[in-house]
C-alpha cells in the first residue's frame, strides 16, 4: 500500500478528480444502496411500530421450528440458521470473485461467481420451502368457540396465545366433523383417514389427546403481512441479485470485461450482493431472533 502518502498529499476536493477516488458508477451504487437501506429500514421500522402497538406478538421460536424432512420435530431456528449461513458463504464467494476480478483472473471470476449464483439459488429454494410450509400448515385455532385449522397467511395468523385445556374440551364439542378428523389424524397415525372419517364426533373427540393438542387463539394478522412482505421484498432482491450475477457471469465468459481491461462491473454487482446479505442480517434479527 504505497498509497497512504498519496492519500494525504492529494487535494481531494479541488476539482478535476473524484474526491473519494472512486469512479462514478461505484459511487452511484453506494448511494443507491443507501437509498435501498431506507426502503428496507422503513419496512422494518413499520413492522416494529405495529409490533409495539400490539399487546401480544407470536414468539418466533414457536413459528419457525420446522426443518425439511424432520417431520414434526421441534427445531426452533434450525432452518433459518442454514439459510443465514448460505447467504454468508455466498457473500464470501462474491468477495473472492471481486478479488479475482482485481487480478484480471477470468477463470477465478467465473468460478467464484458461479458459486455465488448457486448460493443465491439455494437461499431462494429455502425461502420457497419455508413459505410453502407456513402457508399450507394446519394449526388448531380457537375461532368463535370452535376449533379451526388455519395456516399462516397474509389474512390470518394462527399463533395467538395458548388456549387452556378446559376451553379446548368445550370447543371440541362444537367443532365440525372434518376438522375433528384432521385433528384426530394428527394425534393418531395408526388409523387411516377413511377409518377416522367413519367415526362419530364423540369417538373422534375421545381419540384426540387433549394434552398434546395445542390450540391457540388467533394472533395478530399484521405478523403475516410483514413477514411475507419483508422476506418477499428481500427475496426479490436476492432474485434480482442472482439475475445480475448470471448476466455478469455471461459477460465474463464472453470476455466483455477482459476486453474492457477491468472488472469494475463485478465490483458493483458485488456491492449489491453484499447488501442483500446485509439486509438479511437485519431481517434475521427482527423476525427470527427478537
Amino acid at each position: 500500500m504505497a498509497t497512504t502518502a498519496q492519500v494525504h498529499q492529494t487535494k481531494w476536493w479541488s476539482g478535476g478528480k473524484s474526491p473519494f477516488n472512486l469512479e462514478y458508477g461505484k459511487l452511484m451504487m453506494w448511494y443507491f444502496l443507501m437509498s435501498d437501506a431506507f426502503t428496507f429500514g422503513a419496512f422494518l421500522i413499520s413492522y416494529g411500530t405495529i409490533r409495539f402497538s400490539q399487546n401480544f406478538w407470536p414468539d418466533p421460536n414457536v413459528v419457525f421450528n420446522a426443518f425439511p424432512g424432520a417431520g414434526h420435530a421441534n427445531l426452533p431456528l434450525a432452518f433459518v440458521s442454514v439459510m443465514t449461513f448460505i447467504l454468508i458463504i455466498s457473500s464470501v464467494t462474491m468477495v473472492l470473485a471481486v478479488h479475482a476480478g482485481h487480478k484480471n483472473d477470468k477463470a477465478g471470476v467465473v468460478k467464484w461467481l458461479g458459486w455465488t449464483i448457486v448460493g443465491g439459488a439455494a437461499f431462494l429454494g429455502c425461502q420457497a420451502w419455508e413459505w410453502h410450509h407456513l402457508i399450507t400448515g394446519e394449526h388448531a385455532v380457537l375461532v368463535d368457540g370452535q376449533i379451526d385449522l388455519i395456516g399462516q397467511t397474509m389474512r390470518a395468523n394462527p399463533w395467538g396465545s395458548l388456549v387452556p385445556h378446559e376451553s379446548v374440551a368445550a370447543a371440541l364439542q362444537k367443532t365440525p366433523h372434518e376438522t375433528l378428523v384432521a385433528l384426530a389424524h394428527q394425534s393418531n397415525h395408526a388409523l387411516s383417514h377413511e377409518q377416522l372419517a367413519a367415526m362419530t364426533d364423540q369417538q373422534l373427540v375421545n381419540t384426540i389427546n387433549i394434552d398434546a393438542l395445542h390450540v391457540r387463539s388467533k394472533g395478530p394478522v399484521a405478523f403475516g403481512g410483514y413477514f411475507y412482505g419483508i422476506t418477499g421484498f428481500h427475496g426479490f432482491h436476492v432474485f434480482s441479485g442472482v439475475v445480475i450475477n448470471i448476466v455478469m457471469l455471461k459477460m465474463t465468459q464472453n470476455n466483455v470485461f477482459q476486453n474492457r481491461g477491468h472488472y469494475l462491473m463485478i465490483e458493483k454487482a458485488g456491492l449489491y450482493w453484499h447488501f442483500v446479505d446485509l439486509v438479511w442480517v437485519f431481517v434475521f434479527l427482527c423476525f427470527y431472533l427478537i
Binding site: 479541488s14 474526491p19 462514478y24
Partner: peptide, 9 residues
C-alpha cells in the same frame, strides 16, 4: 462530487 472541473472546489 466526481465531475467538477479543475479548480472547482
Amino acid at each position: 462530487l466526481n465531475m467538477r472541473t479543475k479548480g472547482m472546489s
